[in-house]
Amino acid sequence: MFTNVLSFAVLAGAAMASPCKPSATTSAPSYTTVPSPSSTAIAAGEPFGILALRSASPIHFAQVGAALSSVFLNLPAQNATCDDGTKPTTADYATFTLSEDGELYLYAASATPQQLFVDRSGMGQGKLGYTTGAQPIPRNGERTAFSLDESDDLSFNGAGFLACPDSIDGSWSVWVDAGVSNPAGNSNCLGFSARAVKIADAPNSCSYTQ
């Protein structure tokens, strides 16, 4: 089940390995729901949540959510449709799985999962999104280069992530770093480490909005 308090004793030990490690004085924001971690090792196919690590910034410990075929930090409501009616459809984080082939999915136990893609072309500038069912990806979209390192930090073909403020409902839009510091006309974007945190049990199995 999910708890209201993330075990930062577990997370902090893993976060120390990150180049964006939290400072000793940083306090974590309170969340309505957060993934409860177990061990730090995440095997292929295991569900996990993602926390942003960017010390002394508004996005430090922000949770990664999904909605409208895009990815966000601190999205107040994803409005996802979840399998288990006892779970809130307003959960403010998304659940992911990573295949052995480097394909990243939004976790769904009872249906074909939605799949992440990246567009690093001049048009996409690092666009990170997901498709549903037979929906095609952009012409320059890529799927199969996601990986987790020894610290469980997620990357795409070796590249990290950016978050840009002033997106929907006050959230931050998430992009892959394609060498553009402020993609798609955004400003004040911040790089961050995307720390995967394995969910102990009963992960949210959901379909996210298109």
Rank of each mutant, 00 (worst) to 15 (best):
T86L: 12
T86I: 08
T86V: 09
T86M: 14
T86D: 15
P88K: 05
P88G: 02
P88A: 01
T89W: 08
T89D: 13
T89P: 09
T89V: 12
T89A: 15
T90M: 08
Y93V: 10
A94E: 15
A94G: 15
T95P: 07
T95Q: 07
T95D: 09
F96S: 05
T97L: 09
L98F: 04
L98W: 03
S99C: 04
E100F: 03
D101W: 00
G102L: 03
E103W: 01
L104M: 11
L104P: 06
Y105G: 02
Y105M: 10
L106Y: 08
L106P: 02
Y107H: 15
Y107G: 09
Y107K: 00
Y107I: 00
Y107C: 02
A108N: 15
A108G: 09
A109F: 00
S110I: 01
S110M: 06
S110A: 13
A111C: 00
T112S: 11
T112I: 08
P113N: 06
Q114E: 13
Q115H: 03
Q115N: 08
Q115D: 00
Q115R: 15
L116N: 02
L116Q: 06
L116P: 02
F117P: 05
D119L: 06
D119E: 10
D119Q: 06
S121F: 03
S121I: 10
S121T: 11
S121A: 04
S121E: 09
M123I: 14
M123D: 15
M123E: 14
G124T: 07
Q125M: 13
Q125S: 03
Q125C: 07
G129I: 08
Y130C: 05
Y130A: 03
T131R: 13
T132Y: 08
Q135D: 10
P136M: 05
I137V: 15
I137G: 06
P138C: 06
P138S: 11
R139M: 14
N140E: 10
E142Q: 14
T144P: 01
A145L: 03
F146E: 00
L148G: 01
L148V: 01
D149M: 07
D149A: 10
E150Q: 13
E150V: 11
E150I: 09
E150N: 13
E150Y: 07
S151I: 08
S151D: 14
S151V: 12
S151R: 12
S151P: 05
D152T: 13
D152Y: 06
D153S: 14
D153Y: 10
D153A: 15
L154H: 02
L154D: 07
L154Y: 01
L154M: 11
S155K: 08
S155L: 05
N157W: 04
G158C: 00
A159Y: 06
A159T: 02
G160A: 10
F161A: 04
A163I: 12
C164I: 13
C164R: 09
C164A: 05
P165R: 06
P165Q: 09
D166M: 12
D166W: 12
D166N: 15
S167Q: 11
I168G: 13
I168E: 14
G170Q: 11
S171Y: 12
S171E: 11
W172K: 04
W172A: 07
S173I: 14
S173Q: 14
S173W: 04
S173T: 14
D177I: 03
D177S: 04
D177V: 00
A178K: 02
A178V: 00
A178W: 04
A178I: 03
